[in-house]
Measured scan of single mutants.
Amino acid sequence: YKELDVHLRRMESGFGFRILGGDEPGQPILIGAVIAMGSADRDGRLHPGDELVYVDGIPVAGKTHRYVIDLMHHAARNGQVNLTVRRK
């Protein structure tokens, strides 16, 4: 696995990616679609299928989808987010 730290600034449309997973206990949280011309797309480092490991330094492995969405909403209010993702 390769770990990447990604800092994104929120645009009008948000951070520019969707979150998948976390529906079953222990299921990984994954990056879903990366939205064209969004913040994540312009940054270029997030890829669909990347596993989300940390959101603003908070571990999200094994957490629920709702928990991660709530963290992302909090980050959106701050206008930026630091993510750590893991890729095979």
Rank of each mutant, 00 (worst) to 15 (best):
V55L: 11
F17H: 01
I19Y: 01
A36S: 13
I69D: 15
I35P: 11
G49N: 08
D43F: 03
A40E: 04
P48A: 12
I29N: 06
D43W: 03
P25G: 07
D50N: 02
A33S: 15
N82H: 14
A33Y: 05
I58Y: 11
A40G: 05
Q27F: 07
H7I: 08
I31G: 02
P59A: 14
V81T: 05
D23V: 10
V68S: 01
D56R: 00
G79Y: 06
P28G: 05
D56F: 01
I19G: 01
V53F: 07
E12G: 15
P28D: 04
R66A: 14
G26C: 06
T64L: 09
L8T: 02
D56I: 00
L52H: 00
V55Y: 02
K63R: 11
V68N: 03
I29W: 08
E24A: 12
K63H: 11
Y54D: 09
R9H: 13
D5I: 11
V53Q: 09
D56H: 01
V6T: 00
I29V: 10
D70Y: 08
A61R: 14
G22P: 12
N78V: 13
E24N: 11
I69V: 13
G49R: 04
E24V: 12
M11F: 12
S39L: 02
A40N: 05
V55C: 06
E51H: 07
I19N: 01
S39P: 11
G62C: 07
L4K: 04
G62R: 08
L20H: 14
G14E: 05
A36M: 06
L8G: 01
M72V: 10
P25C: 07
P25D: 08
R66N: 12
G57D: 10
R18M: 06
L4E: 08
D43M: 04
G22D: 07
G38I: 00
A36W: 05
R18L: 06
G21M: 08
G26L: 04
L4S: 04
I69E: 15
R86L: 06
G16F: 02
G57L: 02
V85T: 01
S13W: 05
G32I: 02
E51N: 04
F17E: 01
E24R: 12
E51G: 02
E51V: 06
V53K: 09
G57Q: 10
R77Q: 14
V60K: 00
D56E: 07
Y54H: 12
V55F: 07
E12F: 06
Y54S: 15
G38D: 06
F15N: 00
P28I: 03
H73R: 14
I58H: 14
F15M: 02
Y67G: 09
L71K: 08
I35F: 10
V53L: 13
A40Y: 03
R66C: 10
L20W: 09
V68F: 05
S13T: 12
A75Q: 04
G44D: 05
A40P: 04
H73L: 07
R66E: 14
H73I: 09
V34P: 08
V60T: 10
A33D: 15
R9E: 12
V85H: 03
V85Q: 01
L83V: 09
H47N: 11
Y54G: 13
Y54P: 01
M11C: 07
E51C: 04
V6G: 00
R18W: 04
V81N: 01
R42H: 08
K63E: 09
E24P: 11
G26T: 06
D5F: 13
G49P: 01
M37C: 13
H74Y: 10
H74V: 15
Q80M: 13
A36Y: 07
A61V: 14
D56G: 03
M37T: 11
K2Y: 09
R66W: 08
G62V: 00
A33T: 13
G62D: 09
G26A: 06
Q27P: 03
L8M: 05
G57A: 08
R18A: 06
R9I: 13
R42C: 09
A75K: 06
L52M: 08
N82S: 12
S39M: 05
L83Y: 02
I29F: 13
H47L: 13
R42P: 05
N82R: 10
L4Q: 05
Y1V: 06
I19D: 01
E3S: 09
E3P: 00
G79I: 01
R42I: 13
G16V: 00
G21T: 08
G44N: 06
E51F: 02
V55N: 02
I29E: 03
L8V: 06
D56C: 03
H47A: 14
L83M: 09
D50P: 00
K88T: 15
V68M: 05
M11K: 11
R86H: 15
S13P: 05
E24S: 13
V53W: 08
M11L: 12
M11E: 15
R10I: 05
K63N: 08
H7C: 14
H47K: 15
V53P: 01
A75S: 07
D41L: 03
I19E: 02
D41K: 05
P28Y: 02
Y67D: 13
M11A: 14
D43C: 05
D41P: 04
V34T: 07
I31K: 01
R66F: 07
V68A: 09
G21I: 08
K2L: 09
A36R: 12
V85M: 03
N78P: 03
A36K: 15
L30A: 07
V6C: 05
G79D: 09
E12S: 12
Y1S: 05
I58A: 10
T64R: 09
E51P: 00
L4F: 15
P48R: 10
L46S: 01
L46M: 09
V55K: 02
V68C: 09
A76M: 12
D70F: 08
R77Y: 11
I19A: 02
G57F: 05
G22W: 04
K63S: 09
V85Y: 02
G44M: 05
P48G: 06
A40C: 05
G21C: 08
L71C: 07
P25R: 07
E3W: 08
M11I: 10
R18P: 02
P59G: 11
H73K: 14
R18T: 15
P48I: 12
K63F: 06
V81R: 00
A61K: 13
E51I: 07
L83T: 02
A76K: 14
I29A: 05
R10Y: 15
I29M: 09
L20D: 15
D70E: 12
H73S: 13
Y1C: 06
A61S: 13
E3N: 12
L20Y: 12
P25V: 10
A40K: 04
L52K: 02
E24Y: 13
Q27E: 12
G22S: 10
L46Q: 00
R9W: 12
Y67E: 12
F17P: 02
T84A: 05
G44A: 05
I35D: 15
A76P: 03
L71Y: 08
K2A: 03
D70R: 11
P28Q: 07
D43T: 05
H47G: 05
G14Y: 01
L46W: 01
V81D: 01
F17V: 12
V34W: 01
H74S: 13
L71V: 07
V53T: 12
R45K: 09
I31V: 12
R9Y: 13
P25Q: 08
L8S: 02
P28S: 07
Y54A: 14
L46A: 01
L52V: 10
E12V: 07
G62H: 07
G79M: 07
L20T: 15
R9G: 07
I58C: 12
H47F: 11
A33E: 15
Y54W: 10
H65L: 11
V68W: 03
E12I: 05
H47Q: 13
R66G: 12
D70C: 08
G22K: 08
L46K: 03
T84E: 04
R10Q: 11
L52S: 01
V55P: 00
G38T: 05
L46Y: 03
L71W: 02
V60D: 02
L8F: 03
H7N: 12
H74I: 15
D5M: 09
I29H: 14
Y67R: 09
G32C: 06
I19L: 11
T64I: 07
G16R: 01
I29R: 03
L83E: 00
G44F: 04
F17Q: 01
M72L: 14
D43R: 02
G38P: 05
G38V: 00
Y1P: 02
H7S: 14
A76F: 10
S13I: 03
I58T: 12
R86I: 05
G44Q: 06
E12M: 06
L71A: 06
D50L: 00
K63M: 10
R45C: 06
G16W: 02
G44V: 03
G22M: 04
N78I: 13
K63G: 07
Y1M: 07
A75V: 05
G49C: 03
A33I: 03
G79S: 06
E24C: 10
R77S: 12
G16T: 00
N82M: 11
I31R: 01
L8W: 02
E51Y: 03
V53C: 11
N78Q: 11
R86D: 15
H73P: 00
M37H: 15
A61M: 13
P59L: 14
R10C: 13
G62L: 04
H65A: 12
G14H: 03
G57E: 08
G79N: 10
M72T: 03
S39G: 05
R45P: 04
R77M: 13
